[in-house]
């Protein structure tokens, strides 16, 4: 039995189909990346998984128990939403206090420690937080919730480079101490590619791809070198994209590498996940 079993999930908003027959089986204690372009249905999926939206068809099961209107199951999931859902008049400290009341395993001391680390002023009201600090605040609540399943919807929205770095470090530290199932929905794919173990790509409300990062990256490679050598090499190959810098070029190729035909002077590295994502979401027909 899958830990999280998403069965035939469909969500319609009037005439618009946001999700169409999504089927996913997520395992326990893994970190998943939920990728998709704007309007692909990522937030809708996360909202259905946490009972914020009611599915038109299908269901989400956690260890066989349906999430819909089930307080016991819902208490095992925390979803950090991109949208502001906390009362604006509450202070950060008050949210920590009430989160502990709703999530019995919420760690207030850890929340305070993270607030200090990120420089979040806990006496501030939610309405007074900037976009970046609003994300920091929600990240802290999510990490300190100690829920078995943590869903993060665009967690790094508005975060500066330092805070993003800090977030990834804390997420991994938290995960290594207390393994759990984490789903990260984000646009900054390259940044999370080292953290996530499996990738779910949804496009136009349908599952486009669900695979391990390792498998995905093994489908292609990056070749770098002088512009002329790279151009000669990639001629006739399935090229996802090319980056140029001065006289140097990097080309992203979706194909198996044949080292025998690789000319001297060219370097091979792993495929760029972002480039692969753009290619897949632009060209592939969803199934």
């Amino acid at each position: 039995m899958a830990f999280i079993d998403i069965r035939n999930l469909t969500k319609k908003f009037g005439a618009t189909t946001a999700l169409c027959k999504i089927n996913l089986r997520l395992e326990k204690n893994k970190i998943y990346g939920l990728l998709g372009r704007n309007g692909a249905g990522k937030t809708t999926l996360l909202n259905i998984m946490t009972n914020k939206l009611i599915p038109t068809e299908g269901e989400v099961l956690i260890e066989g128990q349906c999430v819909k209107e089930n307080d016991a199951v819902l208490s095992r999931i925390y979803c950090m939403n991109e949208k502001k859902l906390y009362p604006e008049s509450l202070t950060v400290n008050e949210v920590f206090y009430w989160s502990q009341k709703f999530y019995s395993s919420f760690d207030q001391a850890y929340a305070a420690e993270l607030s200090q680390l990120f420089g979040l002023k806990t006496r501030k009201k939610i309405s007074e937080l900037s976009t970046g600090y609003s994300s920091v605040f929600k990240i802290i609540v999510a990490l300190a919730s100690n829920a078995e399943i943590i869903l993060l919807d665009e967690p790094i929205l508005g975060l500066d480079a330092n805070h993003r770095d800090l977030f990834y470090k804390e997420l991994l530290k938290n995960y290594s101490i207390n393994p759990r199932t984490i789903v990260i929905s984000t646009h900054l794919i390259e940044e999370v590619s080292d953290i996530i173990e499996e990738v779910i790509i949804i496009s136009k409300g349908k599952t486009l791809l669900f695979d391990t990062v390792e498998n995905l990256l093994s489908q292609g490679y990056t070749v770098s070198g002088s512009s002329t050598a790279v151009e000669n090499y990639i001629a006739g190959k399935n090229v996802l994209g090319v980056d140029s810098l001065g006289g140097l070029k990097s080309a992203y190729i979706l194909d198996q590498l044949n080292r025998a035909e690789l000319p001297e002077g060219l370097e091979i590295s792993k495929l760029d996940l972002q480039k692969l994502f753009v290619h897949l979401t632009n060209s592939k027909e969803v199934v």
Partner: peptide
């Protein structure tokens, strides 16, 4: 509205 959102983010069902 405010308490509905606050309750949902804290995993409280509609019937509760």
């Amino acid at each position: 509205t405010e308490i509905f959102y606050f309750s949902l983010i804290n995993g409280v069902s509609r019937k509760t």
